[in-house]
């Protein structure tokens, strides 16, 4: 079974720059001018957004499966 994750944002660190939405291959993140949103059903658990964030505001939490 492959590991499934969800992405959590630290709102105090996030600048709503939209970069994570830009690098996400599956449109699982939407950043409006006032909020950051994650769509679990679209996430492919690649963690690209976590690596790319310029300030380290994103974290992955395992929701099912194991590494």
């Amino acid at each position: 079974m492959t590991e499934k994750i969800r992405i959590i944002v630290d709102k105090d660190k996030c600048y709503l720059c939209g970069g994570c939405a830009g690098v996400c291959p599956s449109l699982a993140i939407r950043v409006s001018s006032s909020k950051w949103e994650f769509f679990q059903d679209k996430c492919i658990s690649c963690r690209i957004c976590v690596t790319a964030c310029p300030v380290g505001a994103l974290e992955a939490e395992v929701v099912e499966g194991r590494a």
């Binding site: 939209g18 970069g19 939405a21 830009g22 690098v23 291959p25 449109l27 939407r30 950043v31 690209i48 690596t51 790319a52």
Partner: peptide, 20 residues
């Protein structure tokens, strides 16, 4: 960079993370 509308319109704007 988010390129949301292009992607919703079916234009593939995907690039690997190394290209950012």
């Amino acid at each position: 960079v988010e390129s949301t509308i292009a992607r919703k319109a079916g234009i593939n704007t995907y690039a690997p993370l190394h290209e950012f």
